[in-house]
Amino acid sequence: MIGLGTYAFFWQHSDQVPEPLSLVGAFEATAEMGVELFQICDYAPLESMDDAALADAAASARDLGLTIELGTRGVDRDRLARTLDLAGVFDARLVRSMLYSPESRPTRAQAEQWLRAALPAYEASGVDLALETYEQVSTADLVGLVARIDSERLGICLDPANVVARLELPRDCVEQAAAHVTSIHVKDFAFTRQPGWVGFTYGGAPMGDGLHDYPHLLETVKPRENGINEIVEHWLSWQGDAETTVRTEREWTRRTVEYLRSAS
């Protein structure tokens, strides 16, 4: 299933625009596009919402016919337990996380211990935990960790754009992780020359214009055949003013959804 994530609304949610979009506003925009899945990922206000506000947001998602997934950072037991509680509120069946959080940077052995302690609750609840590929941890190490733990509820959130920062090739990341992928973050990416041709900037690109070989990902991972959701997000830089940035963000989202719908 194609979904949108909060990173598809990064600037619209931010305080850089005159009227930041609420979470429910993002739900409504998602439904208006005919998309039925939304991943609330690294959305800071979620942490401070009280029970009534959470219940209202969950009710809004249900009224709009949206399936919800959640995303956090870190694998300490308290964080994963709290996010599992939130998953219950939203009827979410998948939680995306990363090994490190702003507060913790466990060794591989610590991360494995924490995950083994947290996973029985996920298994009992029928909720998948997907660890994202990113530059802080090699793809080989992440795949090895998931394989060692060998839980039916532990998988990988595949984002091959992230690993370029540790000099991994995106295609290699896709191929190494393929057997364990349970979620995909979809965005295109490219290098552009800095002014004066002194260095490069690595950032986002409109879907289909960058370096992401998405047909290779589809062929290798087979998300549609395997029931793996594809979540749209962007690396869009500020476009000089709020109006232009929001308009571009919305256009990139529309373009990515159309790309995914037409891809096979």
Rank of each mutant, 00 (worst) to 15 (best):
A117T: 15
T248I: 09
W11R: 02
E132A: 08
A242C: 08
S262V: 05
V246G: 03
F27W: 13
V186Y: 10
L86D: 12
R261F: 04
D209Q: 14
V137C: 03
E168F: 04
E112Y: 08
V198L: 13
D15K: 09
K187T: 11
E258Q: 10
D159F: 04
G88P: 09
I184W: 08
T133K: 01
E36R: 15
A140H: 10
T253M: 11
E225K: 07
W11Q: 01
P45K: 12
Y259N: 02
S237N: 12
S104L: 15
L23A: 05
P20T: 03
R247H: 09
A130M: 08
A8K: 01
R116C: 15
Q194G: 09
V198M: 08
P170R: 02
L46P: 00
D78S: 15
V181P: 02
A190Q: 14
A117D: 14
T133N: 05
T220L: 03
R96N: 11
Y43V: 01
G144S: 13
A165C: 08
L64H: 14
L142Q: 00
V137I: 14
A52V: 12
E219C: 05
A8P: 01
H13K: 03
H180V: 02
V164L: 13
H13G: 02
S138W: 05
L169M: 13
R105V: 09
W11P: 00
F200W: 11
R93E: 15
R250D: 09
V24E: 14
Q176L: 15
A59C: 13
G210W: 11
G25Y: 01
A263W: 04
S183P: 06
W252T: 06
A44V: 11
A57C: 10
N226E: 07
V17R: 01
V35R: 00
L66S: 07
C157R: 08
G196A: 12
R171Q: 11
Q110D: 14
S262C: 07
V174Y: 01
W235P: 03
P20S: 01
S101Q: 10
L260P: 02
V246P: 06
S48P: 04
D172Y: 05
A205E: 13
V75P: 08
G240T: 02
Y134I: 01
A44H: 12
R77M: 11
L23D: 00
V164K: 10
T244C: 04
R79P: 05
D85I: 13
I228W: 02
F27M: 11
L169D: 11
N229K: 03
A8H: 00
V24T: 13
G25V: 07
T72W: 12
A61E: 04
A52Q: 15
C41G: 03
Y214P: 02
M33K: 13
Y202N: 06
S262A: 14
T133E: 07
F38G: 05
S237W: 09
C157S: 08
R153G: 00
A121R: 15
P223S: 05
V127A: 04
L129N: 06
L217F: 01
L115D: 09
L211V: 08
P170T: 11
E28H: 10
E19G: 02
Y7F: 12
Q39C: 12
A140R: 11
Q16V: 00
G25H: 04
